[in-house]
Nucleic acid binder design. Structure first.
Length: 239
DNA sequence: TTCCAGGCAATAC
DNA sequence: GTATTGCATGGA
């Protein structure tokens, strides 16, 4: 069984175990439906029409910054703080007092850094005028590294960019599919080549990229949060 | 109390 | 180029 085959099989097993996850965005920007805010079971499961507009794209990007090295429950608190002030828009945050912004995002940590990152991103976002940013341009923005860029592109802009995070590394390392010093791009290419080969339809592949990452996070929270990583992980029994 | 969380930039070597 | 460090809050 090749690495690519294993990567495809892992997805099938995770999906069968946990089901579709339904991630970003989290808040209802149109008032037409009620998203399950803060529900760990998912927010809009099996509805892949999201994000439906620029505001929802913005929320995904904002969440991508806020979730850096931070649990997502904390991020949801910050987003709700902003939403409650009717300030979950680039314009409102831009006009907001910086200390007020810091207070809103305080639950998700690093508020001094992240407030600056957010303001830098808003300037960038406004200049886009609705266009999809290139990955390289995103990486030039202060506070946006590889994972955050891919997070914005995959979940916000529906681009075929696989998001690699610490959990992805741990699982792949534990299963012997990468080595410790594997770089971000190496892991990303491994995942993308495996999935591209087995899923020719782009719309379908996008959904799998999104769900796969979400499934990895869900699975890793259960088996890869405490050392030794991967203890009792049922994926080990597959190969 | 300690450890960890859906990383990043700055700095040191 | 690679390794280390500071950043901050909240929950287990």
């Amino acid at each position: 069984m090749t690495k690519a085959d294993k990567i495809v099989e892992i997805y099938k097993v995770l999906y069968k175990s946990y089901g579709p996850q339904g991630w970003w965005p989290f808040l209802d920007h149109e008032g037409t439906n009620s998203l399950k805010v803060g529900n760990t079971q998912g927010y809009h499961i099996l509805d892949y029409s999201f994000p439906r507009n620029e505001l929802e794209v913005f929320e995904v990007c904002l969440g991508s910054i806020l979730t850096q090295n931070t649990s997502f429950n904390s991020v949801v608190k910050s987003l709700r703080n902003l939403k409650n002030k009717n300030a979950l828009t680039p314009e409102a945050i831009h006009e907001m007092d910086i200390d007020e912004l810091k207070l809103c995002i305080k639950p998700s940590g690093y508020h001094n850094q992240k407030s600056r990152y957010i303001l830098e991103f808003i300037t960038f976002f406004n200049a886009l005028k609705g266009e999809v940013p290139s990955r390289d341009r995103l990486l030039e923005v202060l506070g946006i590294g590889e994972e955050t860029a891919d997070s914005m592109l995959l979940f916000g802009y529906k681009q075929l960019e696989f998001k690699v995070d610490a959990y992805t590394r741990r699982i792949l390392l534990s299963l012997g599919l990468i080595d410790e010093k594997a770089k971000y791009d190496e892991i990303k290419q491994l995942m993308q080549e495996a999935l591209s080969a087995s899923i020719t339809q782009k719309d379908e592949r996008l959904i799998v990229y999104q769900e796969y990452h979400a499934l990895i996070v869900n699975h890793a929270k259960l088996f890869y949060s405490k050392k030794p990583y991967g203890r009792n992980c049922f994926l080990h029994e597959m190969f």
